[in-house]
Design a protein around this nucleic acid. Structure first.
Lengths: 192, 192
DNA sequence: CCCGTTTCTTAACTTAAGTGAACGGGGTAT
DNA sequence: ATACCCCGTTCACTTAAGTTAAGAAACGGG
């Protein structure tokens, strides 16, 4: 499990054994059961999540309806916006599958960053890269129809379509479950 | 003009006179005429843009159609994704109004950052904050209809609706110009 | 000032998504 | 085994966005 974490980090900086041990001493790894709520609307966590195995999602509760806005799977990092702006969270974070997460909190990070400046560099690279990726995702969403978005998802994250409930996928695509169902039927019509 | 820049920076770090002078010596300020293309699809710039006055936009050219994905106005920063991932740009950057921009390039930034670590701190805070903002914008877009998105825009950036051509606004909202026109008519119907 | 272009609006028609309701399969609890 | 609930699908109907076309208004250059 820890190798997944180190593999991920090595994409950004290289670590000495000392630094690796410092990380391991932090007791980061946690098993989380499917359905667990990691964060509720209105709460104010300091925790960030790195998915080693499994899947978690963020969703808003609007007019009694869950609106899923993101899925995080293996090698994805989720820093809730409430950690950054210190306001109460506007969304929920829930565990889609039984998962293993690396959970770090802001105080720990400050401590580690001051001991090992390397992590600071990694954080900066990471947030720059996430920003760029996020922007591309947003642009793609804006410039395509629900059907195109679904087809794109099939290309880019085919696993998601399999492992995630359809109604969560639907709101992730910005539509209702019935529309997703219809849209899928339409597509398989075309193929024949 | 330079006060706008310093006001902006002071939101993140405080500068000494030395640091301010170092910045000013870089010859950052440029006037740009409406319609100028700052970056074309396929090009590979190293420049970042800070809008002191005016408005610039990013757009994709898809099937011969312009799809506007973002507007940047006073106090906004635009670092093209091609600066970060070093691949050719997938979009255009164009000047919506006669504008005054602070244009910096990546090499300059590296030099300045090494002399004044303070700027490095600012960059990190900035990209973290942009990431959080971008995420909220994306979530809002996903969870609302075109009409809601237009009404939200009226609340949050009323100036944009005035100063930007309707067909650019439409694609920014993810719809066609005709639909925006109709949607506006629908709204003003409701009011009466 | 005029002409051509671009931009915005309106309209009629097509297509797709939203809505409300019903059905059936799979799982769970009693 | 039965009753229940959750989920995905389907259907009929409503509503809104896409498409095509046309005309009016605003803009810019010569």
């Amino acid at each position: 499990m820890k190798n997944i974490l180190f593999d991920f980090i090595s994409k950004y900086v290289s670590l000495t054994e000392d630094e690796k041990n410092a990380l391991l001493s932090l007791d980061l790894f946690h098993s989380v059961k499917k359905g667990t709520l990691l964060l509720k609307e209105g709460q104010n966590t300091k925790e960030s999540y790195f998915v080693l195995k499994g899947c978690i999602r963020t969703y808003y509760l609007i007019d009694g309806e869950e609106k899923t806005t993101a899925f995080y799977t293996e090698m994805d990092v989720l820093t809730p916006q409430c950690v950054i702006n210190k306001a109460p969270s506007e969304y929920f974070i829930s565990c889609v599958e039984d998962s293993i997460l690396s959970i770090s909190n802001a105080d720990m990070e400050i401590e580690i960053n001051s001991k090992f400046p390397k992590f600071d560099i990694m954080c900066r690279k990471l947030s720059e890269q996430l920003l760029a990726k996020q922007q591309l995702d947003f642009d793609e969403f804006k410039t395509s129809s629900p059907e195109q978005r679904y087809l794109n998802l099939l290309q880019k994250r085919p696993d998601l379509v399999q492992r995630v409930p359809q109604h969560q996928l639907a709101s992730f695509l910005g539509i209702k479950p019935q529309s997703l169902s219809r849209l899928r039927a339409r597509i398989s019509e075309k193929k024949n």
